[in-house]
């Protein structure tokens, strides 16, 4: 079992797997995402209270969902970096962080745009919004710390510790709306109950979330491949690969 795990850590092996997966991730991801978005924005029914303005949910929820999932994935990779010193895990953390930051920004931005007409304010320091802003700063911190230390190994360890410490924020984001009084409403999707919206609303939402997951997977593979090529530029397999592609 451990052998498979270590093989996973081989950059060369990963490079090949990623190349094979990427067209599928992108193709299915874009198809699902576009179906969900078009269905949600054009064909889903209006909300009885908010009318059409609730439709921003089809962008807000997928980006907020992914922003947190990406951080959890990064935390798992950080654990692997610290315990097994696997280079590929660090490559993933670095590749995913800017994508996560963009998604978090998108969630905050669409939330502000949504909050203005529904709540009457585009920003309020409630627990959900504040913890989400902390997530954005955590992503920035990970990117800055990774860029600030030039030694590859110590940089990887420092980044991994920061990512792991920051993972405490994720349950706070998730449960902020239940632990404290907030302006943000509780989650519409619950693990144990039916979603508090009809199927013609939650199905397109689910499709766009799944689609965005796959698109993230594609983007992560692409960024990881680039990082691997930069790091392993002197090894034989990369030189052979470049020659093979060059001809």
């Amino acid at each position: 079992m451990w052998q498979i795990f270590h093989k996973l850590g081989s950059p060369k092996w990963f490079f090949g797997i990623a190349s094979a997966l990427m067209p599928w991730l992108l193709g299915i991801g874009v198809a699902l995402f576009m179906t969900g978005i078009v269905w949600g924005l054009v064909f889903a029914p209006q909300d009885y209270l908010q009318g059409n303005s609730y439709r921003i949910i089809f962008i807000h929820v997928p980006s907020a969902f992914l922003a947190q999932s990406v951080y959890i994935m990064m935390a798992v990779a950080a654990l692997v970096t610290l315990v097994w010193r696997m280079k590929l895990a660090d490559v993933f953390v670095r590749s995913a962080a800017p994508v996560g930051a963009v998604l978090t920004f998108l969630a905050l931005f669409t939330g502000a745009v949504w909050g203005k007409p529904t709540w009457g304010t585009w920003w309020i320091w409630d627990a959900r919004l504040t913890s989400m802003l902390i997530l954005l700063f955590l992503y920035f911190g990970v990117m800055a710390l990774g860029a600030a230390i030039s030694d590859e190994k110590s940089s990887a360890r420092a980044v991994a510790v920061l990512v792991l410490v920051g993972v405490v924020n994720i349950p706070i984001i998730k449960y902020s709306v239940e632990w404290w009084n907030t302006l943000h409403q509780p989650a519409t999707f619950k693990l144990t109950e039916k979603p508090s919206m009809p199927a013609e609303m939650w199905v397109p939402l689910l499709l766009s979330v799944l689609g965005l997951y796959l698109i993230f997977g594609w983007l992560a593979c692409l960024r990881m491949q680039t990082d691997i090529l930069a790091r392993e530029g002197r090894t034989r397999w990369v030189k052979e690969l470049v020659q093979a592609r060059g001809n």
Binding site: Y48, I124, P198
Partner: peptide, 18 residues
């Protein structure tokens, strides 16, 4: 001096609400 609206997590089409 400021009143904000809070909405819940339930969404439904207007016909269902009626």
């Amino acid at each position: 001096d400021q009143v904000l609206a809070k909405h819940d997590e339930n969404y439904m089409p207007p016909e269902v609400n009626e």
